[in-house]
Design a protein around this nucleic acid. Structure first.
Lengths: 336, 336
DNA sequence: TTGTAAGCGTTATCAA
DNA sequence: TTGATAACGCTTACAA
């Protein structure tokens, strides 16, 4: 059924290599034969077999994606799914396929790097990962171009939100609000973004000459609503005056608010809360959550662009960090 | 660096074909050499190059996934993401990779079937699709094994929730509740699941000798919270007595409830609402949403198992439909 | 500008 | 039970 390049060549009285060059836009070819071949190729709908092409050329036009999920929810994670969706769309516009990287082939256990070499992926996106994972370190330090929308490390190119700006937005807002305490509620610091936001908080509080205690930075045990709830229950009795809570994720904020409410604390009159992410549900929560909106669409698109450039330039820079602007959205858990 | 099968053969004083047979568990091989080769392979970590293997064997150990998103949200769709996640995990345990199917290679436009043939995927999962899409029809009727977790058609194997049971759960509950009206709020019927639930509603109302009017079945314009809200606003004035709304998705239910509340209707005292899906947020909504919980985990795992069997048996059955049990979860939008 | 021929690394067929 | 050898379909030096 499917024609091969050899058949096409025969039918046009040319050599296979000539067809190959034309199809791949390489070498010097006369205008006439180029047109003749291109027309014929279009008519017959010939497309080179991927596997043969990869075997021979060592390029796969495929991007591998790593989703090493900390919380074991993977594609159910609304924030990263949104980034992934955007990345995939723009990568498709560049003509690249997406394959999910796992750590085995058939039933052989492999490192990420071995897997990528075996499949000859041209580049990889680390949607989320763990800095201490040996497999990731090995991969990032290999000659395969990598970009991440989460972690940062030497030799890795990262596209993330501007967390300093995000935290500052919260602090600036708070400092103009006649509030007695600004507190930070974060998820586990094993997540890069949480760790970063905590650092940003410390720095910016000092820069703004705002005092805080170590205990004003609260670390939840997990990532889910329940983790936020648990914290809320624990600290509700300690709240004596008007406070604002900067949360490092919407989900944590949801739990915190529910716990506060259950203890008779009014949001936003007694305590204000600002989330982080602006997941789809934030606006439908009761009360609608004020939050730092991350631009997932742009993070994904930007990461794709970055990776594309990396794959198509010989000189690899060691590391880069692109920070995408965030935005404070006021809903009902703050007072405008 | 990477050893090839030829090198391994040379080092062991055997022929490449012998190594191949052993690695792939084929043909008759003496116990001794088998062990000798297997040991050596394990020691050196040899794994056959995917592309060479695919070129030669015409099998890729790869599953293609189609996500033809109606609402353009793709991986952000919490329900399908959850199914996909589960599918991916169990497929990985079978040793298969996952690649996302698109409709082009490089910059050539291709049909799904052409794409799959080109990449030699062994099977495909249609996470969500459109029955009228020519590309999907062609693919499903090809010799490539397909399963779907959404649409149903001849020659396609489908794993979905038992919607009859789901709707019946709602109707049974309602009919024991001294309610004057049972209504159905559905999303657009272009989605298979919505169309099915409407049919089930009609059938089961009749089976249960419950009267209803055509206008008791309300079709929203879209899939999102806003679509539900719009409907709620429109019908709130018409509500004169105690009613229950069976919604075909949680998201629609969220909007409906918000609209009703805005018109002074109390949930669940004036009107009860039951959603469908039990997405993660249903329990955190205010009021926590009573809903028909779909078992996405099992749908995904079952689909993977089905596809695996299909790929490994010669006799292909024409069609099959596996229905996974659902469950009615009572929270605060119904009265237990 | 076009053609020849040698790979790329496997698997499969058939002979030994 | 093992080994040659010919595919698989393409790309790429290099030659013409």
């Amino acid at each position: 059924m499917k024609k091969t390049i050899v058949q096409i060549a025969k039918e046009l009285n040319l050599a296979p290599s000539t067809i190959s060059k034309i199809v791949n836009n390489k070498g010097k070819i006369s205008v006439d034969t180029r047109k003749r071949v291109l027309d014929y190729v279009k008519k017959t709908g010939y497309v080179a077999q991927s596997n043969a092409r990869i075997l021979s050329s060592k390029k796969s036009q495929t991007i591998g994606v790593i989703y090493s999920d900390i919380a074991l929810i993977g594609f159910e994670h609304p924030f990263f799914s949104s980034i992934f969706q955007s990345f995939k769309n723009t990568m498709a516009s560049y003509g690249y396929d997406i394959v999910l990287i796992v750590n085995k082939i058939g039933h052989h256990e492999l490192t990420y790097l071995q897997w990528c070499k075996n499949k000859k992926v041209d580049g990889v996106l680390i949607v989320m990962g763990n800095i201490n994972n040996e497999n990731i370190i090995e991969l990032v330090n290999s000659d395969i171009p990598c970009v991440s929308t989460d972690i940062m490390m030497p030799n890795l190119h990262t596209v993330i939100s501007n967390d300093q700006q995000g935290i500052n937005l919260g602090i600036q807002y708070a400092s103009h609000q006649k509030i007695n305490k600004i507190k930070l509620l974060s998820g586990p610091v094993t997540s890069r973004s949480f760790a970063d936001r905590i650092i940003a908080f410390r720095e910016l509080m000092e820069v703004n000459k705002l005092s805080y205690l170590d205990e004003d930075i609260i670390i939840a045990n997990g990532y889910d609503v329940e983790s936020g709830f648990e914290i809320g229950l624990r600290i509700a009795p300690t709240i004596k005056s008007k406070e604002i809570y900067l949360c490092t994720s919407d989900v944590l904020a949801f739990g915190l608010i529910r716990a506060f409410e259950s203890q008779g604390i009014n949001i936003p009159n007694d305590v204000m809360v600002i989330g982080y992410d602006d997941i789809d549900f934030a606006k439908h929560f009761t009360p609608p959550l004020s939050t730092i909106k991350q631009n997932t669409e742009q993070i994904g698109a930007n990461a794709a662009e970055k990776l594309f450039n990396l794959m198509n330039s010989k000189e690899k820079t060691a590391q880069s960090i692109t920070k995408i602007d965030v935005e404070l959205i006021h809903r009902k858990t703050t007072i405008k």
